[in-house]
Design a protein around this nucleic acid. Structure first.
Lengths: 141, 141
DNA sequence: CCATACTTGACTATTGGGATCAACTTTCTA
DNA sequence: TAGAAAGTTGATCCCAATAGTCAAGTATGG
């Protein structure tokens, strides 16, 4: 499970949308990009994926933008990573099928599973809340 | 921590050498390759790395080959992976340094650390022994 | 002396990730 | 009812890293 820039940006965008769920008007792509330093056309591409996953809703036209379309408690980082293309394709070789080969693959799988577990138990709600606290601290300093 | 073919091959080779540590003559590259289906020139390249790490010893000339130069209990899969170039460079972006960004990075780091822990606690001795058992089972079937 | 085997350095090729663009459609607002 | 603001789409490009290859050389046993 390699974490790509794609996944990182997707997560940042979702956090932003989660924190601003209560706002009346949707959040523009440009805003998200400016706040987080994400290349705009790239984020557009990523948001397409998030939309087809049903996690964000897009509103077209002037004053348009994006809005979270799911409860932040119902989305974890593993789901995000997998949706945005962090395939888990661990080590594809044409090595002979031997006991050693199987054994080693088991270890790789176990390692992969361990990191997936960490991602799976971290919800969008959690990190959104925790980074919002960070914002407040910054504000008061 | 992505597992590349390099790491996989390196591990297979080390297992082979570990299992044949007691033999008098060293093991030829060609033998390892045939047994495990590894492209020979590629394994040569990998063995170079393992040698400079001090884990294998090479014997040149006819009847030459490789021999394990370390106790299999003293080598774990994390060390192997790192030596052979599985850098942990998790997600390099030029995202703005915000609370959200830091928070997300913490999660990636935790996930990465979880998989590293699995690899770190698996020794070469362990998988060599376990896959040797597998060999026996195959033999008796 | 020659076959076997390791050594070294350079080299190629393919893939996937990161990023960009242009042309288009939709919708608000003045 | 324009036109500005936004999202939509599909194609395209670049680069770095990975996988894999090659050739010329050196050492050693028989």
């Amino acid at each position: 499970m390699t974490i790509s820039a794609r996944v990182h940006y997707a997560t940042l965008a979702l956090i932003e949308l989660a924190q601003r769920q209560s706002e009346k008007s949707p959040v523009a792509v440009r805003e998200i990009c400016q706040r987080h330093g994400i290349p705009a056309p790239f984020l557009v591409q990523i948001l397409r994926t998030l939309r087809s996953a049903g996690w964000v809703q897009s509103i077209r036209g002037a004053q348009g933008g994006y809005r979270l379309a799911i409860a932040p408690t119902e989305l974890n980082l593993l789901e995000i990573a997998e949706a945005v293309g962090c395939s888990d394709s661990n080590c594809q070789t044409d090595a002979t099928d031997t006991p050693a080969n199987r054994m080693v693959h088991e270890v790789w799988d176990a390692a992969s599973e361990a990191s997936r577990a960490v991602l799976a138990r971290t919800t969008l709600a959690e990190i959104a809340a925790r980074s919002a606290q960070g914002d407040e601290v910054m504000f008061y300093i």
